[in-house]
């Protein structure tokens, strides 16, 4: 059975579940450097509830990207542990969606087929891919229209702009209804106008799927706009030095960026960013 796409207006069972989905338990990271081990991440302990959207901000080199790789299980935490539903993550999780700064769409597939890629690989979709293809195409089209790409289904990646490619990449990350969405500076390469537009679209997509969102970003406004919680990391060896809970109502709008409340959150976070 295909899960129905969640209606953002109705209460959702996933969001009522308050037990943490992900727990970071004294997670650390070190790298060999000139003959000795250099500590990158000192210690991170936190937990993330289902359908919570969190951001990690901090200076470059503080191990933000490593956190995503550890959560996804692509490179499990070498020190301490991250638990998913109480289970230690030591191999790649299967129900995650990932988007990077580089949208990495497959050049030989058009937009629609790029978005549908996960359905050909992830169960239970893979099993019924051929029988229910029509339905899956509609799912993909539905997501594409959320990001206003409905008229670009047949286009190939080279025919799309950078922002459009990134939107398609987000749809691909979410089509299989993952429980965790991992975003590694997804809008870092886009211009300021496109970026803000992407925030609202990402929010719209995320509110449909209601999964855990983990965003790595350099852009503090982006973090405030999208997150329920923003974690500020210190320079290397890093740890969480500040946590800000963002209590703005959803769906958030770009006008909110001008509000005192928004700027209050922004300056709180800004104050804790250290430059090395």
């Amino acid at each position: 059975m295909v899960q129905p796409i969640v209606d953002p207006t109705s209460p959702d069972s996933r969001s009522l579940d308050t037990a943490p989905l992900l727990e970071f338990d004294r997670v650390g990271l070190e790298y060999p450097f000139e003959g000795s081990m250099r500590r990158i991440i000192e210690e991170v302990t936190l937990s993330i509830r289902p359908s919570e959207f969190v951001s990690f901000v901090g200076p470059s080199g503080c191990g933000k990207t490593s956190i995503l790789r550890m959560v996804s299980g692509l490179s499990p935490a070498p020190i301490g542990q991250i638990r998913y539903r109480g289970q230690k993550i030591n191999k790649p999780l299967k129900n995650v969606g990932i988007a990077f700064q580089n949208p990495v769409l497959l050049p030989w597939r058009n937009t629609l087929n790029n978005v549908m890629l996960p359905l050909e690989i992830v169960q239970p979709y893979k099993r019924t891919f051929n029988q229910q293809k029509e339905q899956y195409i509609r799912m993909a089209q539905d997501l594409l229209s959320t990001v206003r790409l409905q008229d670009f289904q047949k286009q190939y990646p080279w025919q799309l702009s950078g922002g459009m490619r990134q939107r398609a990449s987000l749809c691909r990350a979410l089509i299989h209804q993952p429980e965790i969405l991992l975003l590694d500076e997804p809008f870092g390469a886009l211009d300021a106008f496109t970026r803000e537009e992407m925030w609202t679209m990402l929010q719209a997509l995320w509110m449909r799927v209601k999964c855990v969102g983990i965003l790595i970003t350099h852009d503090l406004r982006e973090a405030v706009f999208l997150s329920d919680k923003v974690y500020v990391m210190s320079p290397r060896p890093s740890s969480i030095i500040y946590t800000e809970t963002i209590d703005l109502p959803r769906p958030r709008t770009l006008e909110m960026e001008l509000s005192d409340e928004f700027n209050h959150y922004f300056s709180n976070i800004r104050r804790h960013i250290h430059h090395n």
Partner: peptide, 26 residues
């Protein structure tokens, strides 16, 4: 093949054969 693309496939739980079919070969 871009490392990010490999990561996308691994995080979907793709097998070696699937990775080859869907990305490596084309």
């Amino acid at each position: 093949v871009e490392p990010e693309m490999k990561d996308v496939l691994r995080s979907l739980g793709a097998t070696q054969v699937e990775t080859f079919q869907k990305v490596g070969w084309p």
